[in-house]
Amino acid sequence: MALKGNLTKARLAESMLQLIQTSGYSGTGLNAVIEHAAAPKGSIYFHFPDGKEGLGIAAVELAAKQFETLIAEAATSAGSAAEAARVAIEALATIVSESNFRLGCPVSVVTLEMGAESERLRQACAAAFEAWIVPTSALLEASGVEAKEARSLATVVVSTIEGAVIVSRAMQSTQPLLSAADVVAELINQRCKTAGGTR
């Protein structure tokens, strides 16, 4: 029973995540989530007693984990920090393109819509961005960049990717993301070389 309940809870969070990307947080109603997840009525308040806000937080946390996984896989497959950044950004470009530019970053969507309205959602979004900055920073440190600079550079990288996703969706073109991949990779290479790290 517990397993079934956990599966329902996960399915609700996944549905909320997908609907936020296509309809926005404000445009996503709980009935739509229930229908999308094919979940029993009443299951949202059973699993998320605080309703839509709690479900939104779960969706943001899920998005954070998915992108963390993307970063980890890129770091494992790439030969350098610059190449890892390029692999991750190109993977995002593929996701955005294959969705016909309907999918973007749900964390930025929730931040822009609800950051000033819900402190809990704002904190969840901040934690999500932090979950991407920290491993990126660690990857840069492993390439020889000093900790403070690595943190700063990682923040710039994540911010650049977020902006590029939005511009790509607006233009219905992956070019902004691919251009971001070029610039980010070159910037990382330069910083690693300056720090005496390996390319």
Rank of each mutant, 00 (worst) to 15 (best):
L92N: 09
L153P: 04
V134G: 10
E117M: 03
S80D: 11
S152P: 06
E141S: 12
L92F: 04
G24I: 00
V96W: 06
G27I: 03
I188R: 05
A131Q: 14
W132S: 11
Q66N: 13
A154S: 09
T194I: 10
S143P: 10
I161R: 13
T198C: 15
R151K: 13
V156W: 08
Q66K: 11
F48G: 01
V110H: 00
A170T: 12
I34W: 02
L70R: 05
R86L: 04
F129D: 12
A195D: 06
A124R: 01
E61C: 07
A85I: 03
A124V: 06
A10D: 15
A185W: 00
R191V: 12
V33H: 01
S152N: 15
A128H: 02
V184P: 04
E162Y: 02
S159V: 09
S168K: 12
V110Y: 00
Q190D: 10
R120Y: 08
S137I: 07
S15H: 03
A116G: 09
R102V: 15
A131K: 14
G29E: 11
V165H: 02
R191F: 07
V184I: 12
G24Y: 02
R191T: 15
A59H: 01
A147K: 13
D182C: 05
A150R: 08
Q172N: 07
T76N: 08
I95S: 06
T22S: 12
T94L: 14
E130S: 15
A59L: 02
E162R: 04
G5M: 08
A2K: 05
G197Y: 05
S23V: 05
T136S: 08
F48D: 03
V145L: 13
A78W: 00
C192G: 13
A185L: 00
T174I: 11
A164S: 08
A85S: 11
A185F: 03
E113I: 04
A128C: 05
S137T: 08
N100R: 13
I133N: 12
N100M: 11
I166M: 06
E146P: 11
R151V: 09
S152L: 15
R120M: 10
I71Y: 00
M171N: 15
A147E: 15
I133W: 04
E113T: 04
V96C: 09
S97W: 06
H47I: 12
R199G: 14
P176W: 02
G51P: 03
R122Y: 10
L70G: 03
E117N: 07
I44T: 06
T8Q: 12
L62Q: 06
R102Y: 07
L139N: 02
L112S: 14
E98S: 11
L153D: 04
V107F: 10
A81F: 05
F129Q: 13
R199K: 15
A81Q: 07
V33E: 03
M171W: 09
A127H: 15
S77E: 07
G42W: 04
